[in-house]
Write a protein that binds this DNA or RNA. Structure first.
Length: 429
RNA sequence: GGCGCCUUGGCCGAGUGGUUAGGCAGAGGCCUGCAAAGCCUCGUACAGCAGUUCGAAUCUGCUAGGCGCCUCCA
C-alpha cells in the first residue's frame, strides 16, 4: 500500500501489515453546521481505516474537534462555549449519518489545555518559544527546517496585517494568546496569565496525546498545509519528536466550479446534502474523484453520483454469476496504489455488469455502501398493492394496473415485471 | 511577489510512448400491454504551438486558461 506524501512529494510505501497505521486527520472548527467540503477528510480517513483493516492492518483514526478558535468567539459573542458544544454535536450527528462509523478518538481542544500548556513550557524551556506580553510565540528562526513541508520560503511569505510588536520576527506564530476580555468569553490559566492556546499547538498536542511523539499518517485539507501543518511540524520536531511519517492532504471541494467557503455563505452543509441526495449518493460522489484532486460539487455531479448508485444497487436484483475470487485483485491493486477510488469504482461497475455480486458487495462494504446490496422486504400494504396489480395485469386491466403502479411509486417502491407474471419490488433509496 | 497543482469526448473521470478504461447523459434496437430494470449497437477525445521520436494524448520547451496556499477556511 502506498500513499502520496506531501512532505517528500512522492509515493511512500506503508509498513507491512499489521502496521500499526496510526492516522490523525484534522477536523473542523465547530462554530456552524459543517459544510459538505468538511466531510471529505472525514470520509477519506474513515475509508482508509476501513481498507487498511480489511488488509490486516491495525489501523486507527483520530479526528479532532477544534473547539477553541477565533471563529467561535466571532460567531457567538459572549456565548462561545455553548455554540462550540452545540456545533460539536451537529458535527458528530452529521458525520455519523454518513454511515461509516466513527473515528477511534475525537479529542477536543478544550479537554487538552493542561497538556498544551505543558507542551508550550517545553518549547519555551528549549528556547524554541518565548513569552511576550501574555502571549507565547514560536521562534521560527530556531527551527531551520521551517518551510520544508509546504515549500514556502519564510522570507517570501506575504505579510498581511502589520506584524505584531510582540513578535521577535514577523514569521513567528502564536502558541498561546492572552485573553482579550472584550471579545473572548473563555480562558484558561497558564504560567503566562489567562489566555487560550493557538490553533496549531492544539493539533500537535492532541495527536501526540493519543499516539505519542510518532505516528504514521497525518491528514487534512490541502488548504492546511501552510501554515497549520507547517507549524505543527515545527512545534513537534523542534522538541525532537518525529511526528507524522506521511502527510496526506485531500483536494478541495469546489462548489459550482469555485471553492466553497463559509465566508461566501450559501454553501451546502453535510446535513442538507445527505437529506437531499441520501448518504449513499454522497459517498459515491466522493468515490468518483481521486482523494488528492479537487472535486466539483454541483447538482449535476450529485445527480450523476445518484445515477451510479442506482446502477450499482440494481445489480443486486439480478441473478449472480458464478463467483470468481480472482477479480478481487484488480480492486485491491487500485486501492493499494495511492487509494485510487475512481479506478476501484470502475471495478465495482465491472462487477455489477458481470454479476460478480459477492465481490461487489464486499467492495461496496469497504466504502460503507453495503446497504446497496440489501433488499428491503416490502411492508404488508406495499405487498398487497403489488398483489392487486399483478392480478389486474393478469386480467389485462392495464388502467388499474398502471394506477396501482403509480401508487406504489408514490410509496417509494418500484415494481419490476418479469416474464411469466412474476415481479420484483425494489425500494428506491 | 513566493510555493504548488491542474487542463482528456455533452458531463464526471482513469490511463499509457505504438493496443477499446469505466460511469452518467444521449441515439437506435431487443424485451414489455406500456414502462422500469437488463441486454445489444453507436462517440475515435486528450487546451494551443514548437520540438524529441519510426511513432506522443503519454517526454521536453513555450503560450493560454483554471485552481489552492501565503499565519489561524477541511
Amino acid at each position: 500500500m502506498r500513499l502520496y506524501d506531501t512532505f517528500s512529494r512522492s509515493l511512500v510505501e506503508l509498513p507491512a501489515a499489521p502496521g500499526p497505521v496510526r492516522m490523525y486527520f484534522c477536523g473542523p472548527t465547530v462554530y456552524a453546521r459543517a459544510h459538505i467540503g468538511n466531510a471529505r477528510p472525514f470520509v477519506v480517513g474513515m475509508w482508509l481505516r476501513s481498507w487498511l483493516r480489511s488488509r490486516g492492518y491495525d489501523a486507527q483514526l483520530v479526528h479532532n474537534i477544534t473547539d477553541i478558535n477565533d471563529k467561535i468567539y466571532e460567531a457567538a459573542p459572549g456565548a462561545s462555549a455553548g455554540l462550540a458544544a452545540r456545533a460539536t454535536v451537529w458535527y458528530l450527528e452529521d458525520t455519523a449519518d454518513l454511515g461509516l462509523g466513527m473515528p477511534d478518538h475525537l479529542p477536543q481542544a478544550t479537554e487538552c489545555v493542561p497538556q498544551i500548556v505543558a507542551f508550550i513550557e517545553e518549547l519555551v524551556a528549549a528556547d524554541h518559544a518565548y513569552a511576550s506580553g501574555g502571549d507565547v510565540y514560536f521562534r521560527v528562526a530556531s527551527f531551520p527546517e521551517y518551510g520544508r513541508l509546504s515549500g514556502q520560503k519564510p522570507d517570501q511569505v506575504e505579510q498581511g496585517e502589520e506584524p505584531s510588536a510582540l513578535k521577535e520576527d514577523a514569521r513567528d506564530f502564536a502558541l498561546w494568546k492572552a485573553n482579550k476580555p472584550e471579545t473572548e468569553d473563555t480562558w484558561w490559566d497558564s504560567p503566562w496569565g489567562r489566555g487560550r492556546p493557538g490553533w496549531h499547538i492544539e493539533c500537535s498536542v492532541m495527536a501526540e496525546e493519543i499516539y505519542g511523539p510518532a505516528f504514521e499518517i497525518h491528514g487534512g485539507g490541502l488548504d492546511l498545509v501552510f501554515p497549520h501543518h507547517e507549524n505543527e511540524v515545527a512545534q513537534s520536531r523542534a522538541l525532537g519528536h518525529p511526528f507524522a511519517g506521511i502527510w496526506a492532504h485531500n483536494g478541495m471541494l469546489r462548489f459550482t466550479g469555485e471553492k466553497m467557503s463559509k465566508s461566501s455563505g450559501n454553501v451546502a452543509t453535510i446535513r442538507e446534502t445527505i437529506d437531499e441526495w441520501g448518504r449513499e449518493a454522497v459517498l459515491v460522489f466522493f468515490l468518483t474523484a481521486s482523494w488528492r484532486k479537487p472535486i466539483d460539487f454541483s447538482p449535476e455531479t450529485m445527480a450523476q453520483a445518484a445515477a451510479r448508485r442506482d446502477t450499482l444497487r440494481n445489480a443486486f436484483t439480478l441473478e449472480p454469476a458464478a463467483h470468481d475470487e480472482s477479480g478481487w485483485e484488480a480492486f485491491a491493486a487500485a486501492l493499494e496504489d495511492d487509494f485510487d477510488t475512481p479506478a476501484a469504482l470502475a471495478v465495482l461497475h465491472e462487477w455489477a455488469s458481470t454479476r460478480q455480486l459477492e465481490l461487489l458487495r464486499r467492495g461496496l462494504a469497504v466504502f460503507g455502501l453495503e446497504s446497496l446490496a440489501e433488499r428491503r422486504d416490502a411492508p404488508p400494504e406495499v405487498a398487497e398493492l403489488a398483489r392487486r396489480r399483478a392480478q389486474a395485469r393478469g386480467a389485462r386491466d392495464f388502467e388499474a394496473s398502471d394506477r396501482l403502479r403509480d401508487e406504489l411509486a408514490a410509496l417509494g417502491w418500484q415494481m419490476r415485471d418479469e416474464p411469466g407474471g412474476g415481479y420484483t419490488l425494489v425500494h428506491d433509496a
